[in-house]
Design a protein around this nucleic acid. Structure first.
Lengths: 187, 187, 187, 187
DNA sequence: AATGAATGAGCCTTCATTCAT
DNA sequence: AATGAATGAAGGCTCATTCAT
């Protein structure tokens, strides 16, 4: 079983990929990745046929987690709290893991699984919003897709802000939650 | 008399630049620009030492207009209307002219004038917000910088949305204005 | 009992190789071959240390058949008919099995056996030509090597011709046989 | 006028290209060409967007010369002599300049001019053959295309022959001319 | 004996920028 | 002031071959 070596390499590559993307360098080259991981280019290309494939691999778990969070949020008794909690957690997550936004925004996915997960996510978020509207706590025509793109847009905005990203994030959260009509802290 | 030629060239280059950037191709190469304008690369580089410089030139008037709009908004009697009008006009503008967002988001400006204008803009918007808070129509801790980055973020989100960008834009506007606490249509 | 597995694998590899080369893809990668045969690259490399070795293995029987044909042609009573028959059959064969030409043209053989067979073939063809000259039906200084390379050259020419390769082949055959001085159909 | 430098460079590149292709290395890399010419890659790519384009440039004059020879051959009083002279000269030429064969055999041309010239050539050769048939000195159904491909095939055969290429060439010439029905030396 | 992951040289190509004329 | 040829780093990618397991 060469697997031991192989897995080790794959882990190193993935680790470096996570590092780079996590540091905001979503555009890192596969060649550069190979260099950092101390591995031949071919090895990286075997693992990730495409830059996009690499991004999706890095983000896979995070994306899944986001879907789970959306699904779980629908179970929270307080409808407003469910939605607000989901959005807040997701934005904080996206700020920490910018690769998520790259993948969410991409039109063509490298792995079919990713496309599926993205659809799942959009549906789950749509359901959250519908539930909110049904409960009368959401006053906004936003679709699930809209809300997700908004999330991405906010991440961009926050990344473009110099320091104090935490504070900026909170200000945006307040704004968006209030904008949705949800009772937030700033009410 | 060479001046005439020179100015003519500059105009053609700028024209092509406006065309490309206006068409959404903010990343157009200076080489490509030269080709389209029918001039040598050197001529373009003399006019725009940097890609960023080109963007700023293309966007200059638009940026100025934005500042003027912000200043004028402070004169509108109805405080809320002033702020809301400014934001709506600016977002529509940014959607039409994506180059604006590129420049607003950039950390390093190529031309000092641009930096100045950006500061002016931030100040004017801050004043608008402060005025709103003083009048009790704005309930949000957002700074002027925040609001501008938000504008950029929304443009990203809208650009990432497939079709029906006009409708998406309206939904975002409603959300943000409501989020600011302003009496909007959706109230 | 591992032998059984091994032999099975070798057969599958050889089969795929025959398939690919027979389909005209003489340049098929050993990696690709492994993929098609469903075995590891290493297995293929153990069987064929070189791409050339693979070609020679694929072509071995055909080459042998060509030698046999040349030998048998020397037994045909009608000298001209013997030579003409051999050449025609060989050209048709080469057109059908392009790998043969690759091997015949190669200067360095991968397997010593191939070199031996190629020498045998050249000798047999030389003898055919000499017999023809002795019988006065061949008017041409061509050596056995010459005739074989000519065969390869014609295959190239035919492969480069678009459609109607059968017709082109016949035209070339007529030309060459007439050129040798043999009474052909076109006489 | 940078032209002086530029032309110098282009000449060096073309010279190296001629050298490599002339030496039989028709597959020389554009990068390698740049290295040999002591020039940046970009410079070569500016001159030759494609490997095929390079080949065609190298061969352009030779191809033209071949057409001229075919045209001139139609003016030779002795019909057989005209055709034989053309074919002999062309084969010798092709042996000296293997790039010609690469270009003649290619299906897709890089430069439209090349395609035109190739068509011209085929037509001119067809006319030569027709003239020969009309005069009763050609007994062969070969088309112009056939004869050209045959030329290429012979070049392959000759290149594959070890030494004494001159002698081999003559033997092939005798064979082909006799095969066409032309009165040759070997008659 | 079989496996297949790993390697890395090397090809193709683009592009921002310089600089000789 | 204009020109556009030249540059060469850099990225994307393939593939023959090796070697640890």
């Amino acid at each position: 079983m060469v697997r031991a070596d192989a897995r080790r390499n794959q882990e190193r590559i993935l680790e470096e990929a996570r590092g780079a993307v996590g540091a905001g360098d979503t555009g890192i080259t596969l060649n550069e990745l190979a260099r950092r991981a101390g591995v031949g280019v071919g090895t990286v290309y075997r693992l990730f046929p495409t830059h996009q494939a690499m991004l999706e691999a890095v983000v896979e778990d995070g994306l899944r987690a986001m879907v789970d969070r959306a699904t779980a949020a629908a179970e929270v008794e307080d409808v407003a709290e469910g939605l607000a909690g989901f959005f807040r957690a997701s934005l904080l997550h996206a700020v920490r893991e910018p690769g998520l936004v790259s993948v969410l925004v991409a039109v063509d996915d490298a792995v079919t699984g990713t496309s599926g997960t993205k659809v799942e996510l959009a549906l789950a978020v749509s359901r959250l919003l519908d539930r909110g509207r049904a409960a009368g706590v959401v006053r906004s025509a936003l679709t699930g897709e809209d809300l997700l793109k908004l999330l991405c847009g906010l991440q961009h905005a926050i990344a473009a802000s110099g320091d104090d990203q935490a504070a900026v994030t909170e200000r945006y959260l307040d704004l968006v939650l209030a904008g949705l009509g949800l009772p937030g802290r700033s009410t």
